[in-house]
């Protein structure tokens, strides 16, 4: 409220008092909770129904874990663990089946890495611009556009990679590069996660208190110095968290890498070759009419389990980073 004008020292203090009061309300004063207080029988019924809707999300998580574990255990009954995690050869659809998940992890990792190489500079620059340089009016227009960009279906990005990016890559690196390659898929995945990095980092940067910036300006810093040496370090935890979240999104990305990445699960191939990610493999096996008792169907869930654990770990790490390394002001 008083953020625009430095104003009297009472301003920010008032704000914090207000937020404290709101907190107090939520924590202590809100009229009595379960059981006691004025609640009619119908009210309690509604209370119960609302409680059920809230617990539904817990059941979804439990459902995901159970579904994945169930078929994964079935899979490992037939294929030993060492064949899955200890091999780099993947050939699920051939007569001689091999299930070395590293071939898929390689493709996933490479595309995510290319994506991050593209997205981190772009996303951070956009975030710094929006938070430090852009006038409010520009920001009011650009931020919604970023949100819209984040909402573009991934299948559209896949088309873009195949029809627009891939030919350019072939022009640069020679026509012996395949039309399906990891580089084009990685680049569009990068474009896809730019809004995530930009938007979340910008939120973190705007949370840096004004006094820090003003202090730096008072010492004669340029805007550039304030942005890069004061704001970005102060918001570092948020920036890192946004990058980890974006990486997790890149790992879980499905349609663009299925369309543009090719279907070649090979360990150790370069970025100009076709690769296959874990998600693309799941799509490939889903499209075929796989009987539910076959080993191909079960390996679907083993791979999905790997993917789930990987992305969950990244999300948890991102939350931990943003909590643990947050710079507390005021």
């Amino acid at each position: 409220m008083t953020a625009q004008v430095p104003g009297p020292p009472g301003g920010p203090a008032q704000d914090s008092v207000r937020s404290l009061l709101a907190e107090l309300w939520r924590e202590r004063l809100q009229p009595s909770r379960t059981g006691s207080g004025r609640e009619t029988a119908a009210g309690r019924l509604i209370h119960g129904a609302l409680f059920l809707t809230a617990t539904l999300s817990a059941f979804v998580t439990i459902g995901i874990v159970l579904v994945l574990i169930f078929e994964t255990v079935e899979f490992f009954r037939e294929i030993p663990l060492i064949d899955f995690f200890g091999s780099t050869k993947w050939s699920a659809l051939f007569a001689e089946k091999q299930f070395g998940v590293w071939a898929l992890v390689w493709g996933t990792g490479m595309i995510a890495l290319i994506g991050l190489i593209v997205a981190i500079p772009l996303g951070l620059m956009a975030a710094v611009f929006l938070s430090e340089y852009a006038p409010p009016r520009v920001r009011a227009v650009v931020k919604p556009i970023l949100e819209v960009l984040a909402g573009v279906p991934t299948v559209v990005f896949g088309y873009f990679a195949l029809v627009s990016v891939s030919p350019v890559i072939r022009d640069i690196f020679g026509q012996d590069v395949g039309i399906y390659n990891a580089l084009s898929a990685g680049i569009v995945v990068g474009l896809m996660i730019v809004p995530i990095i930009a938007s979340l980092s910008e939120d973190a940067m705007r949370a840096v208190p004004r006094s820090l910036r003003e202090g730096a300006y008072a010492l004669g810093s340029t805007r550039m110095e304030v942005s890069l040496r004061v704001v970005v370090p102060a918001a570092f935890s948020g920036v890192v968290a946004s990058i980890i979240l974006a990486a997790s999104r890149a790992v879980g990305e499905t349609m663009a890498v299925t369309i543009a990445g090719g279907g070649n699960p090979q360990f150790g191939v370069g970025p100009l070759e076709a690769v296959q990610t874990m998600t693309a493999m799941i799509v490939q096996l889903s499209l075929g009419d796989t009987p539910t008792t076959s080993i191909e169907f079960k390996v679907l869930f083993a791979v999905a389990m790997t993917l789930f654990v990987l992305t969950l770990a990244m999300n948890v790490v991102a939350q931990w980073v943003s909590r643990r390394f947050r710079e507390e002001y005021e």
Partner: peptide, 28 residues
């Protein structure tokens, strides 16, 4: 409605983690 206790915190963390689950896993 919810008290601020371990249960509602768990649900809250759970919801933000669900938002990060790859969509294909929902498909499975």
């Amino acid at each position: 409605y919810a008290r601020r206790n371990w249960f509602s915190r768990m649900i809250q963390v759970n919801i933000s983690n669900l938002a990060g689950v790859p969509s294909i896993i929902y498909g499975l």
